[in-house]
């Protein structure tokens, strides 16, 4: 999933300070799963904003609405009835959702309430970590299912570097050395020969080096 975290309340308050009617929009997809921008977080933020404004003696109308998927025009259309009654839209989706709202509702300021973080997985309840860098050329098949691009602090493709200690990365004891994990997994799979093959310099074009990326599926595109 795409993970995100709420911005500090102060920053959000400042960004919406000049508006009296705010449409606060959540998303039922990734940001709901990582407890950052689903229906519940929309409720909490609305309540927090409301109290902040009351404290300042200001009355602001906050309309809450959570879409099935904010990055999809079909669902974004659903807001068309509500947008007219708002001075600004505050989005609790990832950056893709924020931009989809901005594209559809061109005359409304759309503000982000979240900082979009990374593509990750849930490690355990309440903990998410980065897993994929979306580099456009997956090497997981030869790295034991552990990504060196996303999970090595120096994105070393022929690791580990000299800073690995007791399975941990030199940057922090809280960070696993991706190459230690890769090596252990390759051993478990009986594939240590894969380690000996040097991985060539990466072509970063599919990773975004060739500019913004688009996928076109001829059979589906209209």
């Amino acid at each position: 999933m795409i993970t995100a975290e709420r911005k500090p309340l102060e920053e959000i308050v400042e960004s919406v300070a000049s508006f009296d009617r705010i449409l606060l929009v959540g998303c039922n997809e990734c940001v709901t799963v990582c407890a950052a921008g689903g229906r519940k977080e929309v409720g909490l933020l609305a309540s927090a904003l409301n109290m902040t404004f009351l404290k300042g003696g200001k009355s602001v109308q906050i309309t809450e609405h959570t879409l099935e998927r904010q990055c999809d025009p079909e669902y974004v259309e659903e807001l068309s009835q509500l947008v007219g009654g708002a001075d600004a839209i505050l989005s609790m989706a990832c950056g893709a959702g924020v931009q989809e709202l901005a594209r559809r509702y061109k005359d409304k300021p759309v503000l982000p309430a979240l900082n979009t973080m990374f593509m990750g997985a849930s490690e355990r309840a309440g903990v998410w970590s980065e897993r994929c860098a979306g580099c456009g050329n997956c090497v997981l098949g030869i790295t034991g299912g552990i990504c060196p691009i996303a999970r090595c602090s120096k994105r070393i493709m022929n690791g580990p570097c000299g800073g690995s200690t007791n399975g941990k990365c030199e940057i922090s004891d809280d960070v696993d050395c991706a190459w230690h994990l890769i090596w252990e997994r390759l051993k478990a799979l009986g594939q240590t020969d894969l380690y000996e093959v040097n991985m060539d310099a990466k072509d970063w074009r599919p990773a975004g080096g060739a500019g913004p990326r688009t996928i076109v599926r001829e059979d589906l595109a209209e």
């Binding site: 229906r39 609305a46 409301n50 109290m51 902040t52 009351l54 404290k55 003696g57 009355s59 109308q61 906050i62 309309t63 809450e64 609405h65 959570t66 669902y75 659903e78 009835q81 509500l82």
Partner: peptide, 20 residues
């Protein structure tokens, strides 16, 4: 409480999930 200054908070607008 610093937010109420003695007055109860006003009700907020809410939409139904089934706006679609």
């Amino acid at each position: 409480s610093p937010i109420r200054g003695g007055k109860p908070a006003p009700a907020r607008a809410q939409t139904k999930a089934s706006a679609k």
